[in-house]
């Protein structure tokens, strides 16, 4: 890892100010991706602004069907939240599949979504749940947030503080992990929301997480595994790598979508 300077922020305001005053700085939350990337010398932030000690950023609240998850809430807390489980167990299930128990104790939902790794699990949930991304300065709709691989609508120094969404009527997540990294080769989150059916795919798209309108339309008319089982996705928009060809991923999108719907029932 290259040399860096560490700053521990105790409030959102302090963190944003610290970040704004260090052009080459980065926020670090759980650090499960960032520190690993820095170790490989693939990232070299001059300064790290630690968000883990900002109490306001942690925690899950459920009021009726309205859910708010603080950005610095670790995956383990999301996976284990009894309140969340009553309204959206699919999200608990997804969080319990990220990394491993130790990674889940440190890694946070905000860090994962801000990083927008094309193989990360959370972006699919945020997009499928039509969540609102709350930042230190504004609110961003999920559909406007994810711009491409590792690219989001976040501005320089902008920090995610929370996610808000209305619990869906039904939701499910199915993931096919990479045999080596255990990241998603393909993960599909399906949600039956007030605004209609939403299907979001992670791990497969060559520009990151994406929705599948054909599947959504099919699910709108009938929320059943068979509805998506034969909806094909064009391999041309999918990634191809050592572990999975685009054709294989296209197949997995179908299969995982079917299983996600099955899991939602």
């Amino acid at each position: 890892m290259y040399a860096t300077s560490y700053h521990r922020a105790s409030s959102v305001g302090e963190a944003v100010n610290l970040r704004a005053s260090h052009d080459e700085g980065r926020y670090v939350s759980g650090g499960m991706t960032l520190i690993a990337t820095m170790k490989q010398r693939l990232a070299a932030p001059s300064d790290l602004i630690d968000l883990r000690h900002i109490a306001d950023l942690r925690g899950i609240s459920v009021e009726g069907r309205s859910v708010r998850i603080g950005a610095a809430t670790p995956h383990a807390d999301v996976a284990g939240s009894a309140a969340l489980r009553t309204v959206c167990p699919a999200l608990c299930h997804l969080a319990g599949l990220i990394g491993d128990p130790h990674v889940r104790n440190m890694g946070t939902i905000g860090g994962s979504v801000a990083n927008n790794d094309p193989a990360a699990d959370y972006p699919s949930a945020v997009l499928a749940l039509n969540a609102t991304v709350v930042t230190d300065r504004r609110e961003i709709a999920a559909d406007d947030f994810f711009l491409g691989m590792f690219d989001t609508a976040l501005e320089e120094a902008e920090m995610i503080t929370a996610f808000r969404f209305e619990a869906p009527e039904k939701a499910g997540y199915a993931k096919f992990p990479n045999p080596a990294s255990r990241y998603a080769i393909t993960g599909v989150f399906v949600a039956k929301t007030a605004g209609g059916a939403r299907v979001a795919v992670t791990g497969a798209g060559s520009s990151g997480v994406f929705r599948v309108p054909e599947m959504e339309a099919a699910l709108l008319s009938s929320w059943a595994p068979e509805s998506v089982a034969n909806v094909s996705v064009d391999p041309a928009q999918l990634m191809s790598d050592l572990h999975a060809t685009a054709e294989y991923r296209a197949n997995l999108v179908r299969v995982m979508a079917k299983r996600a719907v099955q899991a939602s029932l």
Partner: peptide, 25 residues
């Protein structure tokens, strides 16, 4: 790459990978 777990310790009662946390953190 934060995968093997040979470095696992407990920090404030939770298991963590000490290879992916700065000492200052």
């Amino acid at each position: 790459t934060t995968q093997c777990g040979a470095c696992v310790v407990h920090m404030d009662g939770r298991s963590v990978k000490s290879c992916s946390i700065l000492a200052v953190q």
